[in-house]
């Protein structure tokens, strides 16, 4: 049954983020979120954050985070090359110059519950 507008508005950013996932994956994401504090501590290390971009499952497991089964299966199939696009991008400008954007990604807790204005 479709949710009403008021129901939607009280959804957290986390809930809305995973709304498109299957119910099983949503359950597993909620399960995983119970370890959020440990995950964020792990990701506060820039090297590990970089590893999380290309190999999220490997990083979580190496940090002792237990990843639920279905989610683990999905993450095993993640193509690590896709993360290269978040490490640098090079553009040729019309004046003949080529510039390379250096990209730093930082993983966060997400907006506070109730303060999500997005």
């Amino acid at each position: 049954m479709a949710k009403t507008r008021s129901q939607k508005s009280v959804q957290s950013h986390f809930d809305r983020s995973i709304a498109q996932l299957s119910p099983s994956l949503q359950r597993e994401m909620r399960e995983l979120r119970k370890q959020e504090a440990r995950i964020l501590k792990l990701l506060s290390d820039p090297k590990k954050a970089e590893q999380y971009l290309s190999h999220p499952l490997q990083l979580l497991q190496s940090g002792g985070i237990e990843v639920p089964t279905l989610l683990k299966r999905r993450l095993q199939q993640f193509d690590p090359n896709l993360a290269q696009h978040l490490s640098r991008q090079t553009y040729a400008l019309p004046n003949g110059q080529a510039i390379t954007a250096h990209i730093r990604v930082r993983f966060t807790r997400g907006p506070r519950e109730g303060s999500d204005a997005r």
């Binding site: 983020s17 996932l21 095993q76 954007a101 990209i103 730093r104 930082r106 807790r109 997400g110 907006p111």
Partner: peptide
């Protein structure tokens, strides 16, 4: 000069992206 870009992403968004990408 080469630009610098800083991006903040909630950890679960990236994990969701990775899962759906798969």
């Amino acid at each position: 000069d080469n630009p610098d870009v800083d991006i903040d992403i909630p950890w679960y968004c990236w994990l969701g992206a990775a899962a759906i990408g798969a």
